[in-house]
């Protein structure tokens, strides 16, 4: 069942999303994102496509299934999907209740997704379900920090930021661990806040 509260929040954000995640942010993060997306291979799921700002960072020639909970975001993403030199199929779907069968993707990618998914562990478990055993989850995320005073600032700002969009103090590495992923590699791009995380689903389905 779709979480209508989350869907409505992101529908409202769609009109100003490209301004808030504007030129500076995308330009700054593009090299790190391109580096992470360069791993794309096989059957690929891209979570929370938003308005498709990340599509230009995908390597050409891939077939990607991209989902988002917000139809208004997807409306805007459609133009960028058409410009991609490959194939991107857009689908409206809740990250925590995907309609895909078990084990149908080789790789799942996220980009600033798990700052926003309510109950992130259940979302990550759902990704684990749709990944093939041993499949890779690669995430470009901003997370909470362990460094003072940045950790304190992120905690203080989260109650405000969550009203319009993301939470700023998520323990994404801990959540991955709780969802049963093995964390293979973490690259810090800015402090311990903006990072690429490469994690692997268990090779056996029995403990899902």
């Amino acid at each position: 069942m779709t979480d209508t509260k989350t869907r409505d929040k992101w529908d409202r954000a769609a009109s100003f999303f490209d301004v808030s995640a504007a030129w500076g942010t995308e330009k700054r993060w593009a090299p790190s994102k391109k580096n992470m997306f360069s791993w794309m291979d096989g059957t690929i799921l891209f979570m929370a496509a938003g308005t498709g700002l990340d599509f230009p960072c995908f390597p050409p020639g891939q077939r990607v299934t991209a989902i988002d909970i917000s139809p208004k975001m997807l409306e805007r993403a459609r133009v960028r999907a058409q410009q991609y030199p490959g194939h991107i199929e857009l689908m409206e779907m809740d990250a925590r209740a995907m309609t895909f069968p078990d084990g149908c993707f080789d790789q799942v990618y996220t980009s600033c997704t798990f700052c926003s998914v309510p109950d992130p562990v259940s979302g990550l478990k759902e990704i684990r379900r749709v990944l093939k055993p041993g499949g890779m989850l690669r995430m470009f995320e901003h997370t909470g920090s362990r460094i003072f005073p940045f950790n304190l600032m992120l905690h203080l700002m989260t109650p405000m930021s969550r009203i319009v969009g993301p939470e700023l103090n998520r323990d994404t590495l801990g959540n991955l661990d709780r969802a049963g992923f093995a964390i293979l590699r973490v690259e810090n791009h800015f402090l311990d806040v903006v990072r690429s995380i490469h994690a692997q689903a268990p090779t056996h389905r029995s403990n899902l």
Partner: peptide
């Protein structure tokens, strides 16, 4: 810090702007 974060973010980044700017303000 919060107000100026929104001024600088479109030009220079997100968290990379927000955290030092908030720190500078405080």
């Amino acid at each position: 810090g919060m107000l100026l974060t929104f001024v600088f973010m479109p030009f220079f980044g997100a968290m990379e702007v927000m955290l030092p700017v908030m720190l500078a303000g405080k």
